[in-house]
Computed example of a mutant assay.
Amino acid sequence: MEKALWYLLVGTRGGENRARIIAALDERPRNANQLAECLDVDYNTIRHHLDMLQEHDVIESGGDEYGKLYFLTDRFERHREEFETVLEAM
Results as ranks from 00 to 15, higher is better:
C38T: 14
R47P: 05
L35G: 05
E37H: 09
A4H: 15
A4D: 13
P29C: 03
L69V: 00
R75K: 12
R75P: 00
T12I: 13
E60A: 06
E2K: 13
T45C: 02
I59C: 02
L87G: 02
T45Q: 01
A24Y: 07
A36M: 09
E77C: 08
R75G: 02
E27R: 14
E60L: 08
E65D: 14
T85V: 15
Y66N: 07
E16V: 10
L25V: 06
N17P: 04
R75S: 13
L53Q: 08
E60G: 04
Y66I: 06
D42F: 14
V58E: 05
E81R: 10
L25D: 05
G63C: 08
D26A: 08
Y66H: 07
V86Y: 10
I22M: 05
L5R: 02
V86N: 00
A23Y: 01
R75F: 15
G11S: 11
H79K: 07
A32V: 07
A23D: 12
E82S: 14
L25Q: 04
A89H: 15
L25I: 10
E2P: 04
K68W: 03
W6C: 00
M52E: 07
T45R: 09
G15N: 06
Y66K: 07
R28W: 06
D51Q: 11
L39D: 03
K68Y: 00
C38M: 08
E37R: 08
L25A: 02
K68F: 01
E2Q: 10
Y7T: 04
Y43A: 01
V10T: 10
V10S: 09
E27Q: 13
L50Y: 04
H56L: 00
D51S: 11
N31G: 02
M1I: 13
E65P: 08
L53N: 04
L53T: 09
D64E: 15
E55A: 11
E82Y: 12
V58Y: 03
D74P: 08
N17S: 06
V86T: 01
Q54T: 09
T12D: 02
I59Q: 01
A36N: 03
P29Q: 01
K68E: 13
K3P: 04
D42A: 13
G62M: 10
T45I: 09
T73D: 08
G14E: 09
L87N: 08
G14R: 08
A36Q: 06
G62C: 09
Y7W: 05
V58A: 00
F76Q: 03
R13Y: 05
L87R: 11
R30T: 04
L35D: 08
Y43G: 00
V58M: 11
R13F: 01
A89R: 14
D74K: 12
D51R: 14
L72M: 12
R80L: 13
Y70K: 03
R75W: 09
E82T: 10
L50R: 04
E2C: 07
E65K: 13
E82H: 15
L72V: 12
R80Q: 13
N33R: 13
L35W: 07
I21A: 00
R30A: 12
R28Q: 10
F76C: 10
